[in-house]
Every structure is written in structure tokens, then in C-alpha cells.
Amino acid sequence: MRILSIDSSTDVLSVACGDGREFAVRDERVGPAHAERALPCIREVLAEQGWTLASLDAIAFGAGPGSFTGVRIACGIAQGLALGAGLGVVPIGTLEALAQEAWCAHDATDVLACLDARMREVYVAVYARDARAGWRETRAPEVLSPDAVPAPPSSTFGAGDGFAVHPALAARLGLARHDAAARPTARAVAELAVPRVLRGDLVAARDAHPVYVRHRVALTAAERAAGARL
């Protein structure tokens, strides 16, 4: 199994290439400069493995939620690579990748993944891990005010920069443990993609799309006239 993955949903550009166990990775804090480093990093990890694009089994990408522009860059690159190399694509949710990170780093099996969504909101989802079946989504990704995030069982692990931007959140939710520095990585994206590739659960480049979760991004002329606000 050979997978190349990319995540640029945060200010870290993350690229990984590996077989599901051993990976060549690049994690660079690039701010908004994902575009400049993405393909050079991909060349580097492929070269490190000694693989060509054509020899891969799939391209996986962090589909979101996260930075709108960031997830589109990852999506556009996955589309372009897959279209040119004749490969299938596996879109992976960034909140699930965050749960995978929490499991790898902290052995967490019940995870509330929480990413800062700006505009005084967070992206939130809850996952439970089964040793055989993998992650099950117990609460689907949504965008909420931090005050509106419902408290999960106290044994749940909190992960993501939502806890850094909203320092009172973990205590309000009664979480015993959390990691505010956790973020979705390309390695986690690739690990989650492996079973999907084995199941044949891939999409064509044309059907690989970002997952935004926040859909209300502008006011219509009628809403503006009525004095509505975002």
C-alpha cells in the first residue's frame, strides 16, 4: 500500500508518503504560504521513499473543516495529482484526523475534536474508537459558538486549537485531559485512508471536494437590506 497525503487546513503544511506504517513526512509552519511549499514537499517525500506518483495506490487529503483556502489548496493539489497520474482520491475529515492524532499521542479512544473556526466559533465533532472497526463518529462535524458545545462524558479527550483559542472551554466541558496543540496531520490522514483504500472506498478526482461545514459566508442583497448580520 502506497499513499501520499496532504493537509493544509491549519497554518501548518503537512505532507506524508508511506505504506500505512512507515512514513516520510514534512510538517512546516508556513502560515498562508501553503502553495509555495506544497509541491516541493511532495517531491521530497516521494524521493525519500524512492516512489513515483504513478506507483501510488491513492492520494489522500485533509478535506476540512479548517481554513477555507487551505482545504481548497489541498483539494486542488489532490485533484491535479490524481487526474494526471490516474489515481483515486480519499478525502479525510480533518476532525477525524485530529482524533487519530490524539489516539497516537495520548492513547485517547473517545475524542472531542475542536478546531478554531474564527468568528468566535469552533468546528467540533466527537469520535469513539473501536479496536477493530476504527473510528465511529458519535457527533457529526458542526460549527458552533464555544458556549454551545455540548459536554461529552468526562473521560473524553479534548484535541485541537479550539482549546487554545478558548482556554475556558475544556474546564466548562469537564474534560479531564486535553491537548490544545494537537492538529490534523498528513500522517493521520494517510493512516485513516488505508482501510478505505483497502475497501475500494476512493473517489475520482472530479468528485473530490472540500468539506466546509460553515456554509453561511455572505449575506444576500435582501438580507443586507433587512439589516441581517453574519
Binding site: A38, L39, T69, G76, I77, G80, L81, L83, G84, A85
Partner: peptide
Amino acid sequence: LAGALLVGASVANALGMAL
């Protein structure tokens, strides 16, 4: 528009690399 330009730039450059 920066975000709009980045879509074309991402797909074009990745496609060029793959080909």
C-alpha cells in the same frame, strides 16, 4: 481574487507535476 486564483494554480501545478 486570491482564493479563486489559488484553485486554478493548485490544480494546474499539481497536474503539471503528475504529467
